[in-house]
């Protein structure tokens, strides 16, 4: 799809027909979403067993966003996000073992047990965290884009943030500079409708978050974030826009998290029916599964086998994490200064 004609026009992007797609690609998206779902289910389990502590924000329900966007970027492009970050890391190809080991605070974790759920990084995969302060990643991600522009290296950065972060002041400071200097950054707003327990209607005077860049001259689009193909297509458009030197762009992904804000959130601010309805009607994995089956790209048995394989990867990660030692006590005072 080509770049937008009207900046102010809100647009829900619809996917092309599945039959036009490469079956391998669709099965890959399915696999990635399934991996995130199963991984997060396991993380929830381990949290319940006391093996994961502190804050733990699960990504279940939002899988199509990172999987679709990941498909749109190239190697060397950078990704940064907030604290709901497990899905982003798995989509980037970081090892489930290393992520789970970090969640459990083990020396084999990505941050050697010193970061935890919200603070993981991979310089190899160009993942810049993993940030616990709401909105901080927006300025930081704009800085990654600044570095790309400074080096004229043709790379773009993806800065993910939620509907809650969208009300932080530094987001707009960043929008201003990003457009002023035409930095190659894609702002991906994961609008899951709840900033912790506060619905977007109760927190935002303008709930169409893709319009938030308009006064800075940043085009924005609303995307069905439960549809991995719609995300992929919007991602392609946005990456092309940013990489071609046109500056920043905003994609508002309409998505939904099934679990609470974090593991300790009973989610009393919404009804069980609301969650069930989203699950039943627009679950990203089920939607893609239906497409794959309908197009005949795979049968039930093949998808079941894939699920089994994914579960094995997740169980292996869980075992690996539990078998790994905690960091050596000497780690307490390392990595403070270079």
């Amino acid at each position: 799809m080509s770049a937008p004609k009207s900046k102010s026009k809100s647009k829900t992007r619809k996917p092309a027909k599945a039959s036009n797609r490469d079956p391998k690609q669709l099965l890959h998206y399915y696999h990635e979403m399934l991996l995130i779902r199963r991984f997060e289910e396991k993380a929830g389990q381990l949290y319940g067993m006391g093996l994961i502590a502190g804050f733990c924000h699960l990504y279940i329900g939002q899988e199509a966003v990172v999987v679709g966007m990941q498909a749109a970027i190239d190697e060397g492009d950078q990704v940064i996000t907030g604290y709901r970050d497990h899905g982003h890391m798995l989509a980037l190809g970081m090892e489930a073992r290393g992520v789970m080991a970090e969640l459990t605070g083990r020396e084999t974790g990505y941050s050697r047990g010193k970061g935890g759920s919200m603070h993981m990084f991979s310089t190899e995969k160009n993942f810049y965290g993993g940030h616990g302060i709401v909105g901080a990643q927006v300025s930081l991600g704009t800085g990654l884009a600044f570095a790309n522009a400074y080096r004229q290296n043709d790379r773009v950065s993806l800065a993910y943030f939620g509907d809650g972060a969208a009300n932080q002041g530094q987001v707009y400071e960043s929008f201003n500079m990003a457009k002023l200097w035409n930095l190659p950054v894609i702002y991906v707003i994961e609008n899951n409708h709840y900033a912790m327990g506060t619905s977007i209607e109760r927190a935002s005077s303008e709930i169409h978050l893709h319009k938030r860049g308009l006064s800075f001259g940043i085009p924005g689009f609303e995307v069905d974030g439960m549809d991995v193909l719609a995300v992929r297509e919007a991602g392609d458009m946005a990456v092309k826009h940013a990489r071609s030197g046109k500056g920043p762009i905003i994609l508002e992904m309409k998505t939904y998290r099934y679990r609470g804000h974090s593991m300790s959130d009973p989610a009393k601010y919404r009804t069980r029916d609301e969650v069930n309805e989203v699950r039943a009607k627009s679950d990203p994995i089920e939607q893609l599964k239906a497409l794959i089956l309908k197009a005949g790209f795979a049968d039930e048995a093949a998808l079941k086998a894939m699920d089994k394989q994914v579960r094995a990867v997740v169980n292996d990660a869980s075992d690996f994490a539990q078998d790994s030692p905690e960091p050596d006590v000497s780690e307490l005072m390392t990595d403070i200064l270079a």
Binding site: Q78, I80, Y128, A136, V138, S139, L140, G141, T142, G143, L144, A145, F146, A147, N148, Y150, R151, G169, Q170, Y172, E173, S174, N176, M177, L180
Partner: peptide
């Protein structure tokens, strides 16, 4: 611009990227 929170964060991001 006069935007300390934003440009400090932008600077840190650029430093993360190796500048």
């Amino acid at each position: 611009p006069i935007t300390e929170h934003g440009f400090a964060g932008l600077g840190v991001g650029a430093a993360f990227a190796g500048l």
